[in-house]
Each structure stands twice: as C-alpha cells, then as structure tokens.
Amino acid sequence: MYAIEVENLTKIYGKGVTAVTAIADATFQIEPGELVAILGPSGSGKTTLLTAIGLINEPTHGKVVIDGAVVADGGWLPGLDLKRIRREKLGFIFQAHNLIPFLTALENVMIALEINHLTRTEAKKRATELLTALKLEHRLDNFPAALSGGEAQRVAIARALANRPKVILADEPTAALDTENGKNVMVLLKELAVENHSAILVVTHDHRMVEGFDRIFEVRDGVIVRETGKN
C-alpha cells in the first residue's frame, strides 16, 4: 500500500477567462519510508500540490489517496473529517518552523499529542523522548525565541513526528536556515523517513538540498516535467 497516491490531480484557481491552472494532471505514488522532493521555482505550483495532498487546498479534479484511504476524488469526499485525518495521518514542517511562541519546546510537541487525545502524562513522555532523540533534551523548557534556527526546526520536526504520521509534508523546511543547518535537517528527515517508515514529501526550490533524496519531481508551470530517482 502506498503512503500517498495522486492521480490526475488538477487545481484551477478562478473561473472562465481568469482561470489559472496551478497544477495539472499530477500523477505519482510514494511508498512508506520514501523521501521525495518536489523541486521548482517560485510560482511553479509545488506548494499547491503539497497543500492538496495535505488536505488544505481542495483539488478541482483528480484523486488523492492517503495511507490507502481516498480523501479526494474530484473534490473532497463528502463527510470526510479533514482535521482528524490531518491530525492522525499527516505531519507538517514549515518554512519558518511555525512554533507557537508562547509554548516551550516541550509544550510545542505536547500540543500536537494532546490535540490527538493523548493524556498530559503520555504526551509529556512521548514529547520528551522525541526531543531527546533529536538532541534537544537541554532545550525542553526554552521558548522558541531562545532557540537557534536549527534547533527550532528540529522542534518543529519533533512536533510533525509526534503522532507517528504516515506522511510528512515539508514546505521549504530549509529556507530559513543556513546551508549547514539546512543540510543537517535534510539528513535528519532522511533518517526519520527510514526509521519511522513514513513517506516524506519535501517542497523546495533549492537544488543543493535534495542530495540523497529517493526521488525528485521537477515542476514547471503546474506540470511535473521530470522525475528522477531510484525508479
């Protein structure tokens, strides 16, 4: 079973003469444990593709299947609890880490677990384990403002992994980091993909950051123009 299946995914903004096709007929599958990059310049449609898979942006046409469950087929399936699917099956990593500024590093990870109905004790235990695994055990009680860019992004990764999601979607996760920290984050993502058996889909415009990725989709003007990688 694939972690992500996308079939003829199309997103059109606007109607009639003002209609703009942001992504057209994208079709691909990603297996669990696979690290995949969507590479393209600004405005190419890569974030639209990510948000459609992330259940944020409703596709105009096409099919999206997450962990074997169809979520979109010419639009969201009726009666679908998008929040629950996002909470349980998806993890998000953002360009600017998006940690909640008034929560400590530990609490930022705990909140994702508590939202998913874990008890406070369970959430604290799991969050501490995750942050320790990411070498942040000395930063548990620090607020995001006191963390370096790399540390903050690692906390964000811990939050994304908290609920052991099948799919992790990362939007320009290295954009706010220097080259060294960016590369470290990418290495970390690769390790986590293998360890957790999660599919990781990374959107980036930076070619230097996609070394070691299993597959790379290059997007131009809403169309996947090239696929490179193990297949």
Binding site: I56, I85, R86, R87, L90, F92
Partner: peptide, 11 residues
Amino acid sequence: VIATLKLIGSQ
C-alpha cells in the same frame, strides 16, 4: 498560531 493549530488538526 491559529493557522498552525488548525493545520496540525486542532479542534
């Protein structure tokens, strides 16, 4: 913060 909470599935 609110957008992030919504994105990570907050009720």
